[in-house]
Simulated assay, not measured.
Amino acid sequence: MLTKFILAVCISVAVSETIDCTGQHRYSATGTGYYPADDPIEGGFLDRQGHPLHTLQDFLDGKASWVSVAMDRYLHLPYGTHVCIPELNHKYHRVIPFRVVDTGSAFSHKGYGRIDICTRSQHDSYDNTINGHITLVFH
């Protein structure tokens, strides 16, 4: 019985550390949601290099291997830069790989303080965890 308990604690700690995100650079940011739409505000269906956007819900449904996010183009982050968001990992009880593949005028000169997370629909973009204070962790 004690062995099962110790094993459960070890597994719990290992999972907790993974979903808490490991990385050298942590930033406090305000998150918002956006969604693929043929609308000037939302920016269309493609990222800044013309590839289809990957939504959070598609990732959760197993239809995408990562989630598209938009950030400030003046950060000069390479296309596909990985970012970890512990608040969303905790909400969904798994590691969610986010990649910076998009930008927009709303992010100009916001630095690491603003991120837009791609969701499936307008309704999904209103999620309270996405639209609030979140932590961005970069390697």
Results as ranks from 00 to 15, higher is better:
14 A>Q: 15
74 Y>S: 14
5 F>H: 05
69 V>K: 08
122 Q>H: 06
124 D>T: 05
27 Y>E: 09
41 I>S: 11
68 S>Y: 01
9 V>D: 10
16 S>K: 09
105 S>H: 07
4 K>T: 11
66 W>G: 12
99 R>M: 09
109 H>M: 12
117 I>F: 01
106 A>T: 06
138 F>I: 06
36 P>T: 09
36 P>L: 14
91 K>V: 05
104 G>C: 03
125 S>D: 07
24 Q>H: 08
8 A>N: 11
44 G>K: 14
7 L>Q: 11
63 K>M: 04
48 R>Q: 09
30 T>S: 11
111 G>A: 02
36 P>S: 06
74 Y>A: 07
32 T>F: 02
56 L>M: 08
104 G>Y: 01
40 P>Y: 04
7 L>W: 13
38 D>Q: 14
30 T>R: 08
55 T>P: 01
120 R>S: 04
58 D>I: 01
90 H>N: 13
77 L>F: 06
46 L>M: 11
52 P>W: 15
70 A>W: 02
128 N>C: 05
76 H>R: 13
11 I>A: 12
84 C>E: 00
23 G>V: 07
69 V>M: 03
3 T>S: 13
114 R>T: 05
80 G>F: 04
133 H>S: 06
60 L>V: 03
77 L>C: 05
81 T>W: 04
93 H>R: 09
80 G>R: 12
67 V>M: 02
26 R>V: 01
104 G>T: 00
92 Y>H: 12
75 L>H: 11
59 F>Q: 00
58 D>L: 08
14 A>S: 13
23 G>L: 04
113 G>E: 05
18 T>M: 07
22 T>L: 13
27 Y>V: 00
39 D>V: 10
90 H>V: 15
76 H>E: 11
138 F>Q: 05
76 H>D: 04
107 F>C: 02
17 E>Y: 06
108 S>W: 03
88 L>P: 00
118 C>K: 02
40 P>G: 04
45 F>S: 07
51 H>C: 03
5 F>T: 11
128 N>W: 10
118 C>M: 08
51 H>E: 15
89 N>H: 09
87 E>L: 07
6 I>S: 07
111 G>S: 04
76 H>K: 13
80 G>V: 02
13 V>D: 14
73 R>W: 08
21 C>D: 10
17 E>I: 15
1 M>S: 15
43 G>E: 15
112 Y>M: 05
93 H>M: 07
68 S>E: 02
56 L>S: 12
117 I>C: 05
58 D>T: 06
50 G>L: 00
32 T>V: 01
117 I>A: 02
36 P>Y: 10
74 Y>H: 13
125 S>V: 02
109 H>Y: 11
74 Y>K: 12
116 D>E: 03
83 V>R: 02
73 R>I: 10
25 H>D: 15
63 K>P: 14
16 S>Y: 04
1 M>N: 12
54 H>Q: 09
42 E>T: 10
69 V>W: 00
52 P>V: 15
90 H>K: 15
137 V>C: 01
75 L>C: 06
55 T>S: 03
56 L>W: 14
100 V>Y: 00
116 D>F: 03
18 T>V: 12
123 H>Y: 03
36 P>F: 13
25 H>E: 15
137 V>Y: 01
42 E>V: 01
92 Y>G: 02
43 G>D: 15
63 K>T: 10
69 V>G: 00
82 H>M: 13
30 T>P: 09
131 N>T: 04
32 T>A: 00
82 H>A: 11
57 Q>S: 09
88 L>R: 07
